[in-house]
Amino acid sequence: MLDASQMTEAGAGRLAHAPGDHPPVPRAKIGVMLVNLGTPPATDYWSMRRYLSEFLSDRRVIDYSPLFWQPLLQLVILSKRPFSSGKAYESIWNRERDESPLLTITREQTEKLRARLAADLGEGVVVDFCMRYGEPSTISRVKAMQAAGAEKILFFPLYPQYAGATTATANDAFFRALMEIEWQPAARTVPPYYAHPLYIEALAKSVEAAYAGMDRRPDALVTSYHGLPKRYLVEKGDPYHCQCAATTRRLRERLGFPTEEVVLTFQSRFGSEEWLQPYTVEEVARLAKAGKTHIAIMAPAFSSDCVETLEEISEEIKESFLHAGGERFDYIPCLNASEDHMAMIEAIVRNELQGWI
């Protein structure tokens, strides 16, 4: 990731017909910004507390009245949760780079996309990434991209299925960043791609590759999506549940699996209210008790492996399955920076840039 001065210096020049004392102006470019959920900078208590406070204070994520929610969050939840969350992150931390896997993978995705676009677009396109929560912040990267000469920016939330708590809040942060820029670039946002043929194909190939390495076929394939309060669907009309169901259905059809062999579930429930069901941690136990002793599980809502997949699925949910009598539990990694995933991301970017390039 380049900083603002490096990107500006790389493309700076003088405007045609400008007076001699006119300051250098970067050549006009198009920006492509990938955005993911976010990550704490470290696993200690205060790093985790700051990150969780930002995340859980987002009204898109937790929509309770701040008069009720903030005292509960700041005085009760954040007095304990940073310890447990920090322990979870510690178990999957990338010690070589001293960062979370989500940050490592998102950076790799950005670098690969930059190389793919540079093949024919050269320096005319600036590719970078940001996080909705934590660093690098959305506003810092948008300002750096604009300073580098990006007069048009394509903002790409890496969420296949739309939800107010993911895609919408990422776009909110982008729009707020634009409000702080005097000379605003033109802006576009990438729509959800839950049924995109290349996305479904990439998911299917990841399943086929995983199954090819097993000595016997799993009894069930569990597609586990991050959870959402049920009332977000009922009261607010959030399309997330429908789009998750569509992804699983299209994946099953592409694989040619029978309906009963592919299971749709939701994980990461928070709080006491009802969330989208069935809950993954409970459903895998039910499958084990029903005699399905070997399952494979994947997380189609996540573009990169993170604490929800590497810790929650591979540890907590796996333990629930084995404790209920399951014998073999295979986790199929997220698409991450695989060639199939990067080909999909590139195809979507090029399609959304039509008229700009």
Results as ranks from 00 to 15, higher is better:
Ser79Trp: 12
Ser79Ala: 14
Lys80Phe: 05
Arg81Cys: 03
Arg81Glu: 00
Pro82Gly: 01
Pro82Met: 00
Pro82Asp: 00
Phe83Trp: 05
Ser84Met: 12
Lys87Val: 08
Ala88Trp: 02
Ala88Phe: 05
Ala88Lys: 07
Tyr89Trp: 06
Glu90Leu: 14
Glu90Tyr: 10
Glu90Pro: 03
Ser91Lys: 14
Ile92Arg: 09
Ile92Pro: 06
Trp93Lys: 04
Trp93Asp: 04
Asn94His: 14
Arg95Ala: 09
Arg95His: 10
Glu96Tyr: 05
Glu96Met: 03
Arg97Ala: 12
Arg97Gly: 07
Asp98Ile: 02
Glu99Lys: 09
Glu99Ala: 10
Ser100Ile: 09
Ser100Thr: 07
Ser100Trp: 05
Ser100Glu: 00
Pro101Glu: 00
Pro101Gly: 04
Pro101Leu: 06
Leu102Ile: 04
Leu103Pro: 08
Thr104Ile: 01
Thr104Phe: 05
Thr104His: 00
Ile105Trp: 06
Ile105His: 02
Thr106Glu: 07
Arg107Phe: 09
Glu108Arg: 15
Glu108Ile: 10
Glu108Thr: 15
Glu108Ala: 15
Glu108Cys: 14
Gln109Arg: 06
Gln109Pro: 08
Thr110His: 12
Glu111Ala: 14
Glu111Gln: 15
Glu111Gly: 11
Arg114Gln: 15
Ala115Leu: 14
Ala115Gly: 11
Arg116Asn: 09
Leu117His: 05
Ala118Val: 07
Ala118His: 14
Ala119Asp: 08
Ala119Met: 07
Ala119Lys: 11
Leu121Asn: 07
Leu121Trp: 06
Gly122His: 01
Gly122Pro: 00
Gly122Ile: 03
Glu123Asn: 11
Glu123Met: 06
Glu123His: 12
Gly124His: 11
Gly124Ala: 06
Val125Cys: 11
Val125Asn: 02
Val125Phe: 02
Val126Glu: 14
Val126Gln: 13
Val126Trp: 09
Val127Gly: 06
Asp128Arg: 07
Asp128Cys: 01
Asp128His: 06
Asp128Phe: 07
Phe129His: 13
Cys130Trp: 06
Cys130Val: 09
Cys130Ala: 15
Met131Gln: 02
Met131Ser: 03
Arg132Glu: 08
Arg132Lys: 15
Arg132His: 14
Arg132Gly: 14
